[in-house]
Design a protein around this nucleic acid. Structure first.
Lengths: 238, 238
DNA sequence: ATTTTTAGTTAGATAGTCTAACTAAAGTTA
DNA sequence: TAACTTTAGTTAGACTATCTAACTAAAAAT
């Protein structure tokens, strides 16, 4: 007895096809074109049939977004793993570059991830696939800083010099990740993450076009600064 | 003879009211609720009447977005001008804090500005009100760096050490702003802008909630770093 | 006083989300 | 195998959106 019935397999195939068609529409016609009806047409079925698979438009959108997170996560992990476990610097740089490469190669998808923003922590139920996928994505970066911290701790600010309110948040977060990083190292992690991800956000949302068409050099400089903060020697790509 | 006829005045009032109602809907019911019909209902007129004022939904959205840019610009300028012209440090910090204050106080609006992103440089016609408002917004920050550069130049990288492709873009941009900043100073401007704006982008798009509910301390640290890059002595708010 | 312009109206074409009621096929069980 | 249940699909339709067309009434211009 196979654990998945034939029916279940077909169902999974259809679910996958729906998301694939949605993505194709996103790429070819933009986010507004990703409608239940358009997907159904493309698949040669009637509109309401799609509701057998996703309860409503929002749920479909979330599933597609989760796919994007997962694909991005896999690519970052793959890039990271082109270097042996000990090579923290190369692993980190590779995965960061993979992040940007994906974002640039899949602009509509990356924009989509931002534009339908993680509805503030409180809103999204913490066990939804989207939330999970988002966490696992962030984890790729976090894990590497944790690993680095364990083997080759980077410089951190003195905890008592950080504003008390901020300190408490860092302590809470440190607890939340099982003390894998102490609060002051979590602060460095956050700072790095904001730099990296914030820059990509601006690039992909076309907020840098006024001055740049090619943002890669700025991104590399960002990576150089990241290395600085983490006491790693920057190395150019290639 | 008044230069604006009575009719024109009424028209401007209605245009303003449409945008105000749109904004109210955005705040109270979210971006999806900002529809031509809902606005018309709220104003007690029939749907198609709105088309006398805005040719289509997109044009209305653009006008509202331009309003947001303008309001934000005004607030930043006002904050800047609470300090006398010579006080570069205080003026810059005040306007940056005003930027974040507006973003946090008007989250839906700020999100909206990002989420309906400046359609890449090529797309948007350069004389549209939205594009203009966006430029004027960026100008608030740029102008201050220009002023600072003229009176108290900040450290810059050596131009020949930047990647050639990047150098060319910076040269083009420098030309575009009438050489108000040389390319290497434009590079510093860009770096600062990305830090500042990128961080806000992440905060407002709920990408930092996983660790922080109060991002202010991180923002202040960002300002501290900005001051460092610009050879200014950071000063806390208040 | 007549004409033109403008701001509004209703009716309707088209396209979306989503529900309800039904059908046919596939799987399950007596 | 026959009857039953579950599932994936169907069509019809209620509701809402954008936007066009054709019309009306009021205001402005001549």
């Amino acid at each position: 007895m196979s654990p998945v019935s034939r029916r279940e397999k077909l169902r999974q195939d259809t679910l996958r096809e729906i998301r694939a068609v949605a993505r194709e529409l996103l790429r070819s016609e933009g986010p507004a074109a990703v409608t239940i009806n358009a997907i159904a047409r493309q698949m040669g079925m009637s509109g309401p049939a799609v509701y057998r698979y996703y309860a409503n438009h929002e749920e479909l959108i979330e599933a597609v977004t989760a796919d994007f997170y997962r694909e991005l996560t896999v690519e970052m992990e793959a890039a990271r793993d082109t270097h042996p476990p000990g090579e923290h610097r190369d692993r980190l740089l590779s995965s960061c570059r993979a992040l940007r490469a994906w974002a640039v190669r899949h602009r509509p998808e990356f924009r989509w991830v931002f534009a339908s923003p993680v509805p503030s922590r409180a809103a999204l139920q913490p066990d939804s696939p989207l939330h999970l996928a988002g966490c696992e994505f962030g984890q790729v970066f976090l894990d590497q800083l944790v690993e680095l911290w364990k083997t080759r701790p980077f410089p951190v600010p003195e905890l008592h010099r950080l504003p008390p309110a901020h300190r408490e948040q860092l302590q809470a977060y440190s607890r939340e990740i099982g003390h894998a990083l102490p609060p002051e190292a979590a602060h460095v992690f956050l700072t790095c993450w904001i730099r990296l991800y914030g820059m990509l956000c601006m690039e992909v949302l076309n907020q840098l076009d006024f001055a740049c068409s090619d943002v890669e050099p700025l991104f590399e400089e960002c990576l150089r600064e990241l290395c600085g903060m983490l006491a790693l020697a920057y190395a150019p790509p290639g």
